[in-house]
Design a binder for these strands. Structure first.
Length: 725
RNA sequence: GCCAGUGUAGCUCAGUGGUAGAGCAGCUGUUUCGUAAACAGCAGGUCGCGGGUUCGAUCCCCGCCACUGGCUCCA
């Protein structure tokens, strides 16, 4: 059996949960930025000038730190999308207060304009230097071995040249490339400290990571920081509070957003858009509950491997302590036919010893145990190990504690429910394609450290649908889905996007991927063909497919150039079979449909978060939480009546129009409307009343002058109907 | 979950080992005004929560919770 990761199900939209922090730190394909992923020589040659410069800046950073803390041990210091970092270990905890001091040392190093000298050494020479503490140091450091460098050396394949780089006194194990001289680093700044595991593995020591950025010159660096300022101003968490869109509350729980009326408007407008689009595309709407019995998730395969990302189950029987379903499932997965009875007993024993522990804890422990045993040796060795581990409790006693549980889980995805709807009615080929759409709310127990405003939440509403179709229908269905994406991009003014098309790894058929080479290749060809023929901007990413079929992650860029992964589109030719979904074909045989998972708007939470940044809170009229505010100048009765009549007319036509009847002066009324980014302000004074006009002021555009009332209202209605930008 | 930082009024933020302030918002008056803020008064806080040190803690220490920046994770 595979590792936990490869065995885990990548059901529906993996990307919905992707951290934007991480996604927008990703370098453009195909250059991987992760230090943990060793770059090939070829990739190193492709390093851009800026990346070289930043990589060199990392060496200068290390040099500076050693001047202050000579005992520091360095691990890896690569360039990343927005700068560079260097990981290090030392007793002193670096804080931003130390930055000034470090930057001063860095400046000296840059001013000295040292050459980056490259030397090739043998592995033995490199190891000797590491043992003397020289690698990642300014001089030899007896007793202070360059331990991380030794670890890095081990990752260099035999036959690859081992090179060192030296700038001034600082000597480092490094494959390069670098700029010519330290003086080529035109501008730099340290930006933050963080922690990171050595080689990205949580079993390794935790290191201090110093982040910085560097540029050719000061002007470019200033532009970068200006962009960051703009991003800060557009931060969806800040705007969400200021514009009264959503909030969080401790008593409700972390990661559970509460939607205020203004934010609810955004979500409902998105729903309206999706409903119209999907209705036109032949979708049927369905509704399913937010929870389901454990058994369904055993069928789908989400339990036990996904359990830790689901909210703990609700148990309807207090005495429920065992999990027959889990045992069945585990046995089925592992094919332990011979030792089935034995394992059952062992597991019951284990359960018995953990009566107070939670199901999830128990399960994790059990699984960890399984993983520890190499596949080939599972037979006898497993029996012995199980026996040792789960020895104490007698079988009878364990049995007596077991009662079949009735356990419910909050749904983490909608697909299993939809599969049940497919199965609810006998299906014929005439019913296909069947497109079931639901904006179902899903609950995922994201780790506390992952939560991030609306971008990573624990309750999320997905713009979800599953399309069940035949292979013959696949192309046109898939094409229609892609066209839907493009339509949405046009509406939201998203002019930069890329579809990351992930395919399977032929070497991992049967392990990471469903073992049906023919179907994979066929489906991938279909997907590739559609992408090519529709002229969609896509890149192909090998080996990253979902286990049950190829997938497409949709990445978009906001107006200020930050990248978000908002949606995933996946082809599933495996799970419908697990659910036994079939339709009767023309030839009276039962066949299993293909399933396309799609959610063009992703989760409404993340999409709204994206839109807040994209529009900087200045939503187009159709989306605007408050489309119109009527502002009478003064509160004399005839004027107020005129204002009320206009508001009523707009409301009757479905426009979100409010009236500011306070006694504030008109300047103050305008100021507060502008502050809330009300799209259109209708200013009414005596002159307007007498002429039957309204004076129009649009947020961000200022006063547009007086126009006849009927004309203004007609214009507003047209702009809303067309979803004008 | 891990590392680090932060937590004072609805919001933005001052502040102190002797139980707290400002601006905006809110409320009540006055003001009746033509495109980003008229004036006055009032009210508003268990200083995140729980322990500890102290004669006394919002301040110092410990634990917890939440948020922020990263790491890990992400069907």
């Amino acid at each position: 059996m595979g590792t936990r990761r490869s065995a885990s199900l990548r059901c529906f939209p993996s990307a919905l949960a992707a951290s934007p922090r991480k996604t927008y730190l990703r370098l453009p394909f195909p250059f991987p930025c992760m230090a943990e992923e060793r770059k090939t020589l070829e990739q190193r040659h492709q390093m851009s000038d800026l990346e070289r410069l930043r990589h060199s800046a990392a060496h200068v950073l290390a040099t500076a730190i050693l001047r202050i803390w000579p005992e520091a041990q360095f691990a890896a210091g690569p360039p990343v999308e927005n700068g560079f970092y260097y990981d290090l270990e030392m007793p002193h905890r670096i804080s931003p207060d130390d930055f000034l001091k470090i930057e001063e040392e860095m400046k000296k190093e840059i001013k000295a304009n040292h050459v980056f000298e490259r030397t090739a050494v043998s592995r033995d020479e490199a190891i000797a230097l590491a043992n003397s503490g020289r690698l990642g140091g300014l001089s030899e450091r007896p007793g202070n071995v360059s331990k991380f460098k030794i670890g890095n050396l081990a990752d260099i394949p035999e036959g690859e040249e081992i090179s060192l780089y030296k700038n001034g006194d600082f000597l480092d194990l490094c494959a390069g490339p670098h700029v010519m001289r330290t003086g080529n680093i035109g501008a730099f700044r340290l930006t933050s400290v963080a922690s990171a595991y050595y080689k990205g593995d949580e079993k390794n020591p935790q290191l201090q990571r110093i982040y910085g950025t560097a540029f050719k010159n000061k002007t470019e660096m200033e532009a970068y920081f200006t962009m960051l300022e703009e991003a800060k101003k557009r931060d969806h968490r800040k705007l969400g509070k200021e514009l009264e869109l959503f909030c969080f509350d401790d008593d409700v729980g972390p990661g559970l957003p509460l939607w205020l009326p203004r934010g609810t408007v955004l979500i409902e407008e998105l729903e309206k858009l999706a409903k119209e689009t999907e209705f036109a595309g032949g979708y049927d709407r369905v509704r399913t509950p937010v929870l389901a019995r454990e058994n369904m998730y055993l069928t789908s395969g989400h339990l036990p491997y996904y359990a830790e990302s689901m909210f703990p189950p609700m148990e309807l029987r207090e005495d429920a302590k065992g999990s027959e379903g889990f045992i069945d499932f585990t046995l089925k997965r592992l094919s332990f036919d011979e030792s089935e009875e034995y394992l059952r007993e062992a597991y019951r024993k284990a359960k018995g010893t953990h009566t107070s522990g939670s199901y999830v804890d128990m399960e994790a422990e059990f699984e960890e145990f399984f993983r520890a045993i190499p596949e080939q040796q599972f037979g006898d060795a497993s029996k012995i190990a199980l026996e040792r581990l789960f020895l104490d409790m007698g079988i009878d006693e364990a049995k007596s504690k077991i009662a079949p549980p009735d356990r419910y889980y909050l749904k983490a995805m909608n697909c299993p429910h939809h599969h049940k709807l497919f199965a609810a009615v006998p299906r014929s080929y005439r019913d296909l394609p069947l497109r079931l759409a639901e904006y179902g709310t899903c609950y995922r127990y994201e780790q506390s450290g992952e939560l991030f405003g609306l971008m990573r939440v624990r309750s999320m509403q997905m713009n979800d649908a599953h399309i069940y179709c035949t292979e013959e229908q696949f192309e046109s269905e898939f094409r229609a889905v892609n066209e839907m994406y493009l339509k949405y991009f046009a509406i939201f003014g998203i002019d930069k996007y890329v579809m990351r098309f992930s395919t399977h790894d032929p070497a991992k058929l049967g392990q990471k991927f469903v073992d049906n080479s023919e179907l994979w290749l066929k489906t991938e060809d279909m997907v590739r063909g559609v992408l090519q023929r529709t002229g969609i901007n896509f890149i192909e990413v090998p080996n990253e497919a979902a286990f049950y079929g190829p997938k497409i992650d949709v990445q978009v860029w906001s107006a200020i150039g930050r990248e978000f992964t908002i949606a995933t589109n996946q082809v599933d030719f495996a799970v419908p079979a697990r659910f036994g979904l079939t339709y009767k074909d023309r030839d009276n045989t039962s066949k299993t449909p293909l399933c396309i998972h799609r959610a063009p708007l992703g989760t409404h939470e993340r999409f709204v978060g994206f839109l807040i940044e994209h529009y900087a809170g200045n939503f187009p009229l159709w989306l605007s939480p408050e489309q119109v505010r009527v502002l009478p100048i003064g509160d004399e009765e005839p004027l107020v009546n005129y204002a009320k009549a206009i508001q009523a007319e707009l409301r009757a036509a479905g426009v979100r129009a409010n009236l500011d009847s306070s006694s504030d002066p008109i300047k103050a009324k305008i100021a507060s409307a502008e502050q809330m980014k009300v799209h259109t302000m209708l200013v009414l004074g005596h002159r307007d009343l007498e002429a039957g006009n309204v004076s129009v002021r649009v947020h961000g555009k200022g006063n547009l002058g007086a126009k006849p009332r009927a004309e203004v209202i007609a214009d507003l209605l047209a702009a809303i109907k067309e979803r004008r930008a």
